[in-house]
Design a protein around this nucleic acid. Structure first.
Lengths: 221, 221
DNA sequence: CGAATCTTTGACAAGCATCAAGGGGTGTGG
DNA sequence: CCACACCCCTTGATGCTTGTCAAAGATTCG
């Protein structure tokens, strides 16, 4: 686990130096009122821990992960965001976590200061939403078994993406592992186990068909 | 683990029926502008999952835990709150989690609707604070080893309580275990291990002296 | 087609949960 | 004031779950 994650994070650290000098990404269609639309290629960094939190973002398309890198090279993923999700809205002047593009994605950046005074009503709703999401993640991580975590993740993801039966994952097994506090091997084994038990199908590595939601919900405890 | 928690939760479920019929607790000093001060004895429920989220709260004194009960009797603790902390502020009309008094405590209740329109600026800051706290909890739970979790918990708690050297815990080992997603035995063993390694002292079960913060921070990774 | 990356699977070891028993502190009743 | 009971905590023995290490299979991309 340590090897893959370390390799991954150092690759990103190299990119960070390049990207961090200015507001990263390519402007697609600046909209003075709404914010600027930006494009990020897969695995690109959107913002890094410690960078100015002047902007927050809304996903237009693609998948974004919010994560933290530990000193020993481990990576913890706090959240995956999809279209219409807000991320990067924080109390301080600096981002406490990093954001990266899991797939190619488009986001809109909003200036926090602009919105601060005028739309705090809306921002409150968004902040509470983020709080609930973070709490749900805690509750998922607090669960005991790997099966409970994986089943819970699948159910959350299918619900979030409004998937019916088949789910497109977008993220790698390593991403899932870092999100659930497991190793990539355990995630892989757990998914294989679910397939053997005919709860899911794995037609390809990034496609999962949910065959039996009831059992999956039982497994998620 | 199942036995203690189940016993604990069923005891509380009995009390819930009594308390839930009205706004629980004894009014100490109603303050129309600020909210009402309420008193709760140790182990009493402040609000339960599913109850109206008409109010949110600020701790005046004592310790409050926010938790969720799983169908199989397990309990997960999402947060401990101390004086000046806000809790119970949620987007929906119902509380998603329960709140209970870890020790005797006093809280002030605020009507959400009142505050909603007028102080959304302040509420935003509180919501973001709650979000950060929940994220930190996720990052703690995502850590691999029991030692990392316990060390991280101790550091968070001493910082939160502004403790210098000696920490008063207020909560039981079971509370800590449910907060960290461990068993009570593992928490106990880990603390004993830290004492053997001369990183902490355990003069009494609820008092912990931190002898070596540097090592503790290393252990928390 | 070949190289790189991601995923799966197996063997093994370590860490944690479980089961069980005993110790220590506190409160209550004799 | 002592004795007992209750609760919480600690410690030990054991087994399951998951992490680690290793290798091979699958997929993607040049």
């Amino acid at each position: 686990m340590k090897t893959q994650t370390a390799a991954n994070s150092s690759r990103i650290l190299v990119e960070r130096a390049i990207l961090a000098k200015a507001f990263a990404g390519r402007v697609v269609a600046p909209q003075p009122q709404m914010g600027s639309a930006l494009h990020f290629a897969q695995e690109r960094e959107i913002f890094a821990e410690g960078m100015s939190a002047e902007y927050f973002y809304k996903v237009v398309s693609g998948v974004v992960r919010i994560c933290k890198f530990l000193v020993d090279g481990r990576r913890q993923i706090e959240a995956f965001h999809i279209a219409d999700d807000i991320f990067g809205l924080e109390p301080g002047v600096e981002h406490r976590l990093s954001a990266e593009a899991v797939s190619d994605c488009t986001v809109i950046a909003y200036r926090k200061n602009n919105a601060d005074r005028t739309h705090s009503q809306d921002l409150l709703a968004l902040a509470l939403q983020s709080m609930v999401r973070a709490q749900d993640h805690s509750l998922l991580l607090g669960r005991r078994g790997a099966m409970e975590k994986v089943a819970g993740f699948l159910l959350n993801w299918v619900k979030k993406t409004h998937g019916h039966g088949t789910v497109s994952l977008a993220m790698t097994r390593q991403d899932i592992a870092d999100y659930l506090g497991l190793t990539i091997e355990t995630v892989s084994r757990t998914l294989s186990q679910l397939e053997r038990d005919k709860v899911i199908d794995l037609p390809s590595t990034r496609q999962i068909r949910l065959r039996n939601l009831d059992i999956l919900e039982d497994l998620a405890a």
